[in-house]
Structure formats: C-alpha cells, structure tokens
Amino acid sequence: MLKFIALRLLQGMLVLLGIYAVTFVLVAATPGSPFSSERAIAPEILAQIEAFYGYDKPLGERFITSLGNVLQGEFGPSAVYANRTVTQIIAESFPVSIKLGSISLLLALVLGVPAGILAAVKRNTWLDYLPMSVSMAGICLPTFVMGPLLALVFGLILKMLPVAGWYGPEYVVLPATTLGLYYAAYFARLTRGGMLEMLNQDWVRTARAKGVPEHTIIWKHCLKGGLIPAITFLGPALAGIISGSFVVETIFQIPGLGQWFVRAALNRDDFLVLGLTVLFAAMIVIMNLLVDIVQVALNPRLKYD
C-alpha cells in the first residue's frame, strides 16, 4: 500500500508539473501584460518593472526560474498587488475557502446520502419521488439563482441571517447551504443509483433466502457497494466545492480563494493565476488518491497496483 501511495504521489507530481507548464505557456501567450494599465507609463519605467519581475528574460529562462521558486514553496510576488506575495494571498484566503467548503461538503453528505438510500429502499413510492424531484431541481438550479434566492428569503424578507460578509458563524449559513444543497442533490442521485444496483443483485436474494431482515440487508450487504459511486464523486466534489465556490463567494462577498481566482484572471496577475491553478490541481490529485484508497478499502475485489 505504501508503494501504491508513493507511486501515485509521484504520478501526481508529474501531473502537476504538466499543468504548471501548460498554464505557464497559456498565461505567457495571452496578449497584454500585467503591467499595462489605462494610464500611459513611461517606457523606461515599464522596462524597469518588467526587469523587476523577470519579464525581460526569455520565456524558457523565466519558466526555469519560476519553477525553481515554486519547488521551494514560493509562488512569487503578486504582479498587481505590489506589496503581497502569492503565498500570502493563499495563506489568507485558503482557510476561508476550506472552512466554507468543508461545511458545505458535510451538509451535502448529511443531506444527500441518507436521501439517496431512502429513495432506493422505497423506490417508486413518494419517499423516492419527493427527494429525487427536489434533487433534480437542486441540480438544475445554478448556485447563482439559489444563492440570491436564499439571501432574499432568509436575509431580506425573514431577516434571520446576514446576506454578505465573513465575520462570524452566522455568516457561513447561507453560502454553505447554497453550495451544499447543490452537491447534496448530486450525492442523493449517485447514492440512490448505487444502492439500487446493489439491491437488485442476486446475492440480496440469497440474503433474503437466509432470513436476513431488510434493514440488515441494506446496512450490511448493500451499503459498502452502494456508496462507491458517491465516494468516487467525493474527490471531484471537494475540489469543485472549494474552487467552484467563486460564484458563491462573489454573491456573499466572502474573502475566499474563488474570488482571487476570478480577480487574478481579470487583472492578468500571472503569478497568482499560476499559484492558484497549481493549488487546485494539487487538491484534486490528493483527493483522488484518497478516494482510491477508500475504494480499495470498501471493495475487496480491488487491489493496490
């Protein structure tokens, strides 16, 4: 198993290197520069700025230098916010995104998985139709509709919760619900599908023929296999919740990573774009590795190799 993890981490490193290289080339190929602005800058000053950030060197050399810095954990200065480094920006905003993301994910699992199990066990009854139509609506409704809707109802009409900002626990509720409900819908459908597949297996009939009661069939015989689709989705979901939260972060004015991502792209803040891309890619790689480990633990037919 250690060998498997080491190998996968090595593979992950290669993936990250590839992503870094591609992003670097794409950013460099984008027209314009981080230093162009509406105000005309004297050519000498511009040259000085470019020299400071290393933009006067050829592309290959810049790549090697920046890669060397990244390997030492330094993503470089922000090209737009002159007095901050990319690492500082990440250190400030990443914990916010992690907090929002993990609460949303927890909410998604707590709501989605039991709803999916219930729907599968009571299939073709209202206990199936109701959660499944709600989840269909949840998948179809984008977060930029759900977010303002929740803010309108609970913030402006009922005046129960704050609609924007990031100052205390009550500020987490609406954004986490907006994000969580969306993924809860996915988890519900995936869990229902997985459980239904298990419940239709021949060995469920064998268990019934042994006199095993239905609840034991669900918990003991079906849950392990039935959760596999949902667990497989957990990796992309976590990465998506943390990175994809930029819509929600914008709606609710939360100082998280997502906002920085958007701002960095719009500002052509090359170093920040690169840093954030590598961070997200690393998260996806690590989550997928964790998911693979959990899958092997759940399914005895899978082996580490």
Partner: peptide, 24 residues
C-alpha cells in the same frame, strides 16, 4: 417467513458467481 427461511427451508441458486456477496 424470516424464521422459516434459512432455518427450516434453505435455497441454493443457479449462478454461484452472483449469488454470494462480493463485499463480505
């Protein structure tokens, strides 16, 4: 029924490849 199944009456099925739970 549950008391009879597996105790007084047992059953074996056609396809042994799918009749045992692969997860247990």
């Amino acid at each position: 029924l549950r008391k009879v199944r597996g105790d007084k009456i047992s059953m074996i099925f056609q396809d042994p490849m799918t009749s045992l739970n692969p997860y247990l």
